[in-house]
Amino acid sequence: MAEAILEVRELCKDFGGLRALDHVDLEIYPEQIVALIGPNGAGKTTFFNCVTGIYEPTEGDIFVLDRKGKKRRINGYKPNKVTELGLARTFQNIRLFPNMTVLENVMIGRHTRTKSWIFGALFRDRRTKEEEKETIEVSYEILKKMRLEKFVNELASNLPYGAQRRLEIARALASEPSLLLLDEPAAGMNPQETKELEGLIEQIRDQEKIAILLIEHDMKLVMNISDVVYVMEYGRLLAKGTPQEIKEDERVIKAYLGEDHDA
């Protein structure tokens, strides 16, 4: 198998006396869809925040393949550096730029893929103009992929909830990541929207040829599209396996799926 795009070893994160992550191991290979599940407060979002540089891990190593295929330890990297390396994420509690248009939101996502700075802004040389034009075109294409083109000139805050979630994905995709991290992308969506999202996630994997790590509480979605499922509880990994294995795992059923699992 190819080298892992993301390889996390013995990751720990403490908040004061609370150990939110306790020796977590995880790896993702190209074009894999990996799900991270677990009860509320298990530490899933904390894991994302550590990997994307928002928190600095207390212990452990995070390795990422950069765009040239070189393995890098990214502990302590700033979030923008991590994004430059090819990781892009969405947020559990939507964090769009509410007073910017849908198109502009995605254009911000193109930031790591463009260069112009003060000089370009002032003199608008040919390169800058081409870059701006390309930014708009590419952003629009991404919006089309996420079926958001009809909202293109709306303010992000005026979008329906489900569309806002898709816009977050579109914005993340704009940086052309090699690994996309989705934090509860289906939260607040109705069953039909969730079904649609399922198709979109698979489509992203197939078309962009990227890996996807997702946190999700919707078991149907997780079991349908994941190649590998990790289960967390109290900051520790409880189990890892294919959806089938996880469904049958005694500990998982007891700890997490519990009474409302009727599959």
């Binding site: 923008n80 994004t83 964090r95 911000i108 700075w117 370009g120 802004a121 701006e132 940086s175």
Partner: peptide
């Protein structure tokens, strides 16, 4: 591009950093 980044920074710094 810079002006857009300023605007976005005013709206949400965390999201901005996550966008690179």
């Amino acid at each position: 591009r810079l002006g857009r980044a300023w605007l976005a920074l005013r709206e949400d710094e965390v999201a901005c950093e996550a966008m690179g």
